[in-house]
Amino acid sequence: MAGLNGEVSWFCCGNAWGPCASTGRGACGTCHSGNFQHAWPNTSDACFAITHPDTCGVTGMSRRTCGFRHSTTNLCNGSRVVTSIADCGPQTDLFCGERACCGGTCASNRIVDLTPAAFSAIASLSAGLIPCTIDVG
């Protein structure tokens, strides 16, 4: 699985403030907004049944479990973070077909969600959604 292109967004976890009070510590029980972590749509059969990346025609999304490392590179500026899996997500099938291009490289469908700490290292939290490429970290 080298260089899977897609969109990255962010999510909060770890029983923090506001609507994040009810999010818990994620599917792995380790998730915290301040850590360098991410959610991956294929961490288990139960997870895949929720996210269904195959509905959008996303292939090559390997089964990876808690703690596995991926690197996420922002296609618009080249910034890169390495994070470990802490939760199941995003719900890829809800947003099939979304597409964004940067410098001639295009990316479709939501394939990863980073924690605020990790996302803000490569993009602005207010931007919300960025084209990226994912590699094994």
Partner: peptide, 18 residues
């Protein structure tokens, strides 16, 4: 702005959000 070549050209210099 984020998808523009201008942003890529100066991204390394930026220290904040808007």
């Amino acid at each position: 702005l984020l998808l523009s070549p201008a942003y890529r050209a100066v991204n390394g210099l930026l220290r904040s959000d808007i």
